[in-house]
Design a protein around this nucleic acid. Structure first.
Lengths: 111, 111
DNA sequence: ACAGCACGTAAGCTGTCACTTACGGTAAGT
DNA sequence: ACTTACCGTAAGTGACAGCTTACGTGCTGT
């Protein structure tokens, strides 16, 4: 499990920024190089590069060299890690909720 | 759809902080009041309160009054919003990837 | 070989956010 | 009624993170 729980950078940290979520959504529609992404965003091109590095370290995007350009696209591994985390904790919460109800219904029993 | 895409605060913004992810994980195991959470965390109790407010605004946790204490527990709505977002964009990315391959395989055709 | 393009990195600045201490409010116990 | 416990809010501070400009590198075409 190379991508056990977290990558070099946590995927949730990466998607915690709204600009990176925008980039993520653009890449979901269509893989693109840095310049194209920067043209549709209100920030400079180096800023997009920095965001892409964070997303890459989180395992959310992958890089493909194409001459002088670098094509970025979504990476399924990072998304899988996030989904697993959500599902796992949600399953735990469901079990805990039953225990919680059983513990508290002794003194409380609404309809 | 009261919780269409985002709540008052985006769920990804809320889980972008590692301390809030810790609180989230603790609440997944077992609903708890503020004081109990703060006792197991390296930060003060008011700090935990502030984090809980962020998580609540994001629809990730819900509050239940129990005398002077406030029991916090996970809220399925916020988690569902995040999963939907991930699944939706991932599905989009899969479709886009096919288009991308079709466009680029004209000059490239590996096995 | 040289000019031009696409991109990453470095350095510096600024705003935001997480944390603290101090305070006020509500509920339970004596 | 008074004290104690549990909690949220306000105000202030410090650190981090995102942004910009400037620069260096590698690839492409003429």
């Amino acid at each position: 499990m190379a991508y056990g729980q977290t990558a070099k950078r946590d995927a949730f940290d990466a998607l915690g920024d709204s600009t990176r979520r925008l980039i993520f959504e653009r890449l979901a529609v269509r893989p693109a190089p840095v310049g194209v992404l920067a043209a549709t965003l209100p920030i400079s091109r180096p800023a997009v590069s920095q965001h892409l590095r964070v997303l890459k370290e989180a395992g959310l995007v992958s890089e493909t060299a194409d001459g002088a350009r670098r094509i970025y696209q979504l990476d399924p591994r990072g998304i899988a890690v996030m989904r697993d985390w959500l599902d796992n904790h949600w399953a735990t919460a469901l079990g805990a909720f039953e225990t919680f109800v059983n513990d508290t219904q002794r003194k409380d029993d609404p309809e």
